[in-house]
Design a protein around this nucleic acid. Structure first.
Lengths: 228, 228
DNA sequence: TGTACATCAGTGAACGCGCGTTCACTGATGTAC
DNA sequence: TGTACATCAGTGAACGCGCGTTCACTGATGTAC
């Protein structure tokens, strides 16, 4: 099948879910279009599904066109990864914001932590590939994101803020605040990983997964708020 | 360079660290030799480094020879993955066994849990690629390991046993025993992942990593043994 | 307002790469007699 | 003990694959005059 002189196979057009076949020779927004296609590939297939040629095919453009907007395939993957991290952070922040703020401060902050933990895990389950992409190794030392410490990401900042609130509210003793961020992150990240791409997700029933999730989150909260 | 009619490039022979160039036409133990080479490739390079042709090169054999011992490349990777899981379990069990058994039962069992957690994390740091390989997706539905639930792996059984001991010793209340295994696993697995292949390992100093590790493990133990 | 032209954003053919896998083969081994 | 021969465990040339990337190119755009 030919559209505007561009050879597009039928099944690819269908899977592409592109809004409309391109009508102009110049795409107009090719960089964003490729980013979106890359993100969709990553969402289900993980980082190794973000293949420059496939992205171009989905957008209905020659593979070479990508080089007008990305220096190479690695840069495309890095941008997709960045988007994945941003989506994850969004999910987290939205979930926290949805928790009613009225009530005892300690109760509120614990509810917020619980919401954040569950949002993180839910995101990983619902967007397994994208979650993996968010943490994939890209290994280009001259990336514009290189050297950006994780502490500067929105998700980690949100978690840190929550833990600070917990200290203020008296839920966490101040001497346990240090390291509590990475420890909390580890717990939800580990469970999310085991679920999204690991043996737990492969071998446990949905109900068993839900129970394990609840127990994991509660264990974390118990550890954080343990009195003694 | 030719050895026994087999073309072997110099740098490959060096990197291969094979004990001695093969002298006989028949290798004698090719399957094991390929497994070992695969494991070494995985140890630093992760699952995608386990490449059939490279394994053959390292052993000093033609790529085709592999098909006398493995049905295909996937089977080789699966065997390597299985070995990786076994090594991880070994590290865990050895560390637990090294904990002195005399003393108050509750203290002993907590020390054992701490040792297991640290062994898991240490293994992941020291053998990052192998750790990733242990949990890589292999996705062959007709694998001989398919359907083997993680609950049957040595590492998980060791952890479960430890948690049972903890309940017996009164460290964990019985109603919190269910799910504590996956929750504990999640925590160490998450930290190990963030360290071995993630942002924590890439952006934190060694001292900061050690502190984070200690805090993570203690948070887990606090959660498990929380009184209320 | 019309036109020349520089610039920008695409094209598609082609390349080299390393991979997994197949094929027909051959050298080594061990067993039956 | 010696020999014929089936079987086993290797060889290496070759194939097709999809990938990232390069190259010389061309169509579209917009700006200067």
């Amino acid at each position: 099948m030919f559209v505007n002189g561009v050879n597009i196979r039928h099944d690819e057009r269908v899977s592409a879910r592109q809004t409309a076949p391109r009508t102009r020779y110049h795409h107009g927004d090719l960089r964003n279009a490729m980013m979106e296609a890359g993100v969709e590939l990553a969402r289900t297939g993980g980082p190794e599904a973000v293949v420059l040629r496939e992205v171009a095919r989905r957008v209905g453009v020659s593979a070479t066109a990508a080089y007008r907007h990305f220096s190479d395939a690695e840069e495309l993957l890095e941008e997709v990864k960045h988007t994945a991290l941003a989506e994850l952070a969004d999910a987290l922040i939205t979930a926290v914001a949805a928790v009613p703020a009225d009530g005892d401060p300690p109760d509120v902050v614990v509810a917020r932590l619980r919401a954040a933990a569950n949002a993180y895990i839910d995101f990983a389950v619902r967007n397994a590939g994208l979650f993996l992409t968010a943490y994939c190794r890209t290994a280009s030392p001259d990336s514009k994101y290189e050297g950006e410490p994780f502490a500067d990401t929105d998700a980690f900042r949100a978690l840190s803020g929550l833990l600070d609130q917990a200290v203020e509210a008296g839920c966490i003793s101040p001497e346990w605040r240090a390291g509590a961020d990475i420890a909390s992150w580890s717990m939800v990240h580990g469970f999310a990983t085991l679920l999204a791409d690991g043996p737990v997700g492969r071998h446990l029933s949905a109900e068993a997964q839900a129970f394990a999730q609840e127990r994991t989150v509660e264990l974390l909260l118990r550890g954080l708020t343990a009195s003694e």
